[in-house]
Design a protein around this nucleic acid. Structure first.
Lengths: 333, 333
DNA sequence: AACGTTCCCGTGAACGTTCACGAATTGCCG
DNA sequence: CGGCAATTCGTGAACGTTCACGGGAACGTT
């Protein structure tokens, strides 16, 4: 009835007004529950709107009352549980502000990331996310849009960045392993970027602080399979390794599986400690020890900073934009 | 420089025009890479825009060129891996169409769902999602907006609904268990709604078809913990049960953990078969047998139908809007 | 010199809604 | 009956952008 077969133009507030025999303003009053309208005419307008299938244009409405705020959330891979948790926290924080969240999954592709950023810039009021491109590029694509970077070392002061400080946590993890008698500790770093990760730097510093030689490192894709094959090659090249620290929990879980396949009992023959503190880690066997992050806090903090940037109310300072990690011992190491 | 301390009004295209000594239209040409503009003036305009921190209003732009489409994705809990997978698939499908996706997590709350629906109706061009409220209510809140329901029995023809057909898959699962010698098979249903789930109906039909007595059923919250405690009570009341089928994989994973704690070896002492086919199921010990769904297809199908509804190009018929489930045997049963 | 082209650029209109204001009607009281 | 307030409704303007059109300058052609 209301739907049209032909490619007709949009039903506007004018059409409703004409149909109900009133003016635009009266229609507006009826639909927005404003006062200054008679009960019967209000009902008549509502009926007309329903009959015509009228829905107000969000653009026209947004143009005049500047109240709806929407923020873009950009993540590399929603299926990666780490980002799922961050995203969930961000959604919750945004809801508390009454904001809308547009989510973009860049599929770990720098090219998609570029395209997304390009498109997003004209669709949202602020951007929160995890980016791999250079700050120059991001700057160029966002053009003064408030941007909050997640898990990024702060190189310039153009963007806010939520920093992850895992130094103490990693130190605690390595110390723990050493106390357990481990002397040869390897690491499964990520394979994403060319240079080693910051987490690797923490690892190196921690082993050095414990008076250990520099442990062997192997690069792993950010997936369970990546962790599996990485552990295999690490152990093949360095059979004397009795403990591994991994870039994140996903890789650690892969390491767990590979260890089982290789006949190495965890934690007896091989200790494994991950990074992130995913819930997922409690489900695997044995439960994964990890340097845990407050992922909820991460997402919430990012959105909070976006809010500050947007409202102009004093933004958080860099040293407030930090999420610290702490060792959470379960059974794998 | 560009940012203002005072609460000043928005920088518009007029301001840029004035600053560059040209007209609005010329500014528009420069920013949108249209032709009919001299190289030097274009540069001058771009500089002015940058200096003023100008960003075009998405509302004004959307009002005149009606090209940007955004769809709302409503899910009860993003942290539930099932919905994560559906959401990821939906995001990907939407990206293929060049659409924007606004994601809302209703936190399993009917009240939040209502509020979301209310707000969403004026912000998107179509809604895709998983709803618990009655169709009447949804109808009232969306007012003619294209809506695609996920995993919902089609009661009326007002909405499109993606139906999950697990009948054959569940039948295969039960048949498999019976062939393995199981005679007393229980089920862990969900605890969400008052009435038993459709999946329970499939289960009942399948056991009956195999000539078995009706198996005992226990309700479980949709969480690992829910699955754990549900299995415990089920086994306490019915110790003769040697196999369980669960509402979904999350609950099944809880059952796995409870079985371990109770000293029941899986699958020797207790067989467990879940429903959904989550990737997560491959990570637990033992790997979870399950009646697997094509979750990617689910999300993609929903978005595809939204696209058809939106463009008016013949929508998919109800019997095309079906995702079938098939038994995927791993090691737990 | 008159005329057609090409290249730039600007002006009115339109998109669909809400806001600010004014006008018409009704009711009430003196 | 006059006047004042309250109630109900309508009209111009504004939000910020793009589209359709038209105009002027520069250049070449006949």
């Amino acid at each position: 009835m209301a739907s049209s077969g032909t490619e007709s133009r949009r039903v506007t507030i004018h059409d409703v007004a004409r149909s109900a025999g009133v003016s635009r303003q009266t229609v507006s009053r009826a639909l927005n529950n404003k006062g200054e309208i008679h009960g019967s005419t209000k009902q008549r307008v509502l009926d007309a709107a329903l009959a015509l299938g009228y829905r107000p244009s969000r653009f026209a409405r947004g143009l005049v009352r500047q109240d709806t705020i929407s923020v873009g959330l950009v993540i590399p891979d929603l299926l990666n549980p780490f980002f799922t948790e961050v995203a969930a926290a961000a959604l919750e924080a945004a809801r508390a502000h009454g904001w809308h969240v547009l989510v973009y999954d860049t599929a770990d592709s720098a090219e998609e990331e570029r395209g997304t950023l390009q498109v997003i810039a004209s669709q949202v009021d602020a951007v929160v996310g995890y980016f791999s491109r250079s700050e120059d590029e991001i700057e160029k694509l966002t053009r003064g849009l408030p941007v909050v970077l997640i898990d990024r070392e702060r190189r310039s002061d153009r963007f806010s960045a939520i920093r992850i400080d895992g130094e103490a946590g990693v130190q605690a993890a390595i110390t723990h392993l050493v106390e357990k008698g481990h002397r040869r500790i390897g690491m499964l770093d990520h394979a994403g970027r060319a240079e080693p990760s910051v987490r690797h730097a923490w690892f190196a510093a921690a082993t050095a602080a414990c008076g250990l030689d520099e442990g062997p490192v192997c690069r792993a894709d950010q997936s369970v399979e990546g962790g599996e094959s990485a552990l295999e090659t690490l152990l093949a090249e360095h059979p004397d390794v009795t403990a591994v620290f991994t870039f994140n929990d996903i890789i650690a879980i892969g390491a767990l599986r590979a260890a089982r396949r290789l006949g190495r009992s965890v934690p007896r023959d091989l200790a494994v400690i991950g990074f992130d503190g995913l819930r997922l880690g409690t489900l695997v066997e044995p439960p994964l020890s990890t340097v845990a992050l407050d992922t909820r806090g991460l997402g919430a903090l990012a959105v909070e900073q976006a809010a500050r940037l947007l409202t102009g109310s004093g933004p958080l300072t860099p040293d407030e934009l930090v999420v610290r990690a702490e060792l959470r011992l379960r059974e794998s190491g």
